[in-house]
Design a protein around this nucleic acid. Structure first.
Lengths: 337, 337
DNA sequence: AGTTTCAGCACAACCCTTTGTGCAAAGGTA
DNA sequence: TACCTTTGCACAAAGGGTTGTGCTGAAACT
């Protein structure tokens, strides 16, 4: 005995008036007499009527849905951003549909296609690490569907985006190391085709130059952004004839990978070597000593991305903009001599 | 020059046939001649036609959407479960709409109402910690909409649910402590109105009795499930005339709270005191020594919940079932003498 | 050749809502 | 009284898709 959702038709037949009368009465249309309006609204409230969103969507040609694509939705970084997006979307009566690209270009492409088929009104996404070309974004751009990129961005001349000040982040860390007296500062970098990685690497070199330290290439190692790879890169650093006394990871994963390698190497932090990188408060305070880290305003990233999305939705012809959010360096035990 | 999605009507007018012909041709209906079918399908492929889901939804009276309510979507535990739900939903062509109750009964109630207005076909949820009555679930049950609860469940005689073997989890931990030679085993419990907490507490006592240790009330302390509160509870334990040599936290948060208190107290793990609790691999291996922990099959919880959901969707009259998943004790450094 | 049969397509209704237009009854004015 | 305006509602179309039924012309039958 499954009760179906009730429609205007049900209300209309119960009141023995036409559907259009009911519809107008619910909107206080002047064409409808006050008595009728009252009667209709009373019944609608009693029966707990709500308009069918599908019918509305069909009529208005809008689904009230935003597609969100992230490399992975389990990581706190992304889930927190999603939470920020959802917060704004909810306020505006929109829903989000989350898809994971699992850092695969192929999957990302499928996600975009799927979401377009679902008739989302636009997409907010962070690119997969494999994504170097953007043919799958063409349909969005050509059809002027709102598209907002965050964290891992591209095509910034055509697409609005939200990023953090990556260069400044690593610069802050390196300067912090220097101020604490560390002089052999190393950096574990990542896949260099990513804009974010380039920026962070630049920030590192900028600080090195700024304080007048020698630009030693051997203190700049690369990894593929996995914990294991970062750990190996760290071990490479430790085997140097003159190993670094401070190290900064290019990402959350790289930082903790380096941390593990250092522990395995039996070195004491922060005396023999200082560590800093990217981590949220919870993770930074879980390890001993607590990790000096760059805190990303994840919720705000999501909020801004959603804000830009609605801006474009309302004004598709505006020029794309880029919002740069500032990160925060939180010094903790791992780098305080 | 916003190109709209194209419809059957567009295809029909381009081929100068009726809409119904196009519709049938796309489905290989025998009424349509092979040549016409070929022609239509060719054009549809060329133009990249996909049916409008709103129109289909309106027609079939199904939205292909599942509402998902969690206390918080940022925590890995829940985001991983959501990921499992999404995985199954995607396979079946369904989308999920995620709402957060923020552990508030009021918000949870609003979430349910909102989702029902959106015409989701059912809801998969974990109850907020405030939820003790279930008037907001009545509409779901009365209208026989699929409802599946996980982790924090209730009304198991009317609603399908997925839980883990909580009692067994803590029992395993306590037995593991005993086998490692620990004899003064403590437990940091939580808000006792939660079924989950009761079960875990029971598992602890069960193991204590099983191995014949004295049932010492002072080794059983309570906290309100925050890190700080758990840390305070831990400190209380450490101040005992005969402090425990092993401690188990009732939850992820409680476990790490206890860990921090022990560190602050300057005790060495696992020699002076062993620690174990609930944590995923990433967090367990982040701390030193690595934390012995109960691993929850979060992805599977989501998968099972979704499976039960579709079972009920297809067969609403079946009796509710409860799936109990087993947890896994992963011994690590924090409890190995 | 006249009738039947069937292939092959068009028409119309339905799902639910909004909204422009039509229309009848009531009121007002000359 | 005859005409015009206004009130208050009904009708219909549109949005995109499916599907039962109606219609037309040609092939196959007697």
């Amino acid at each position: 005995m499954k009760k179906k959702h009730l429609s205007l038709k049900d209300l209309a037949s119960e009141l023995k008036v036409s559907i259009s009368t009911v519809s107008r009465a619910l909107k206080n249309h002047p064409d409808i007499s006050p008595e009728m309006t009252k009667k209709v609204q009373a019944l609608a409230r009693k029966r707990n009527y709500t308009p069918n969103p599908l019918a509305m969507g069909l009529l208005r040609q809008q689904t009230k849905m935003i597609g969100v694509i992230v490399p992975d939705m389990v990581t706190q970084f992304f889930s927190s951003i999603i939470s920020g997006i959802e917060h704004v979307a909810k306020q505006r009566g929109y829903y989000i549909i989350i898809s994971s690209s699992y850092d695969s270009f192929q999957k990302e492409r499928e996600c975009v296609e799927n979401l377009l088929q679902t008739r989302v009104e636009g997409i907010i996404m962070s690119l997969s690490s494999e994504t170097k070309n953007f043919p799958h974004l063409r349909p969005l751009i050509d059809r002027e569907l709102p598209l907002v990129l965050f964290d891992r961005v591209a095509l910034t001349d055509k697409v609005s985006s939200v990023v953090v000040n990556d260069r400044e982040s690593t610069r802050k860390i390196a300067l912090h190391f220097y101020n604490q007296g560390y002089r052999r500062i190393a950096f574990i970098s990542g896949a260099s085709h990513l804009q974010m990685v380039k920026e962070r690497a630049n920030g590192y070199w900028e600080a090195i130059r700024e304080v007048g330290l020698p630009e030693k290439k051997e203190y700049f190692v690369e990894c593929n952004m996995t914990q294991q790879s970062a750990a190996q890169a760290m071990m490479k650093l430790l085997r140097l004839p003159e190993p670094p006394d401070a190290v900064c990871g290019v990402s959350h994963t790289a930082t903790f990978g380096a941390l593990k390698a250092i522990r395995n190497g039996g070195l004491t932090i922060p005396n023999e070597i200082a560590v800093a990188g990217f981590a949220d408060q919870f993770h930074a305070e879980l390890v001993t000593p607590n990790l000096t880290s760059i805190h990303h305003p994840t919720f705000e990233i999501g909020r801004e991305a959603a804000r830009l999305f609605f801006e474009r939705l309302e004004n598709p012809s505006e020029m794309p903009v880029q919002v740069v959010l500032n990160t925060q360096l939180v010094p903790r035990g791992s780098s305080l001599k």
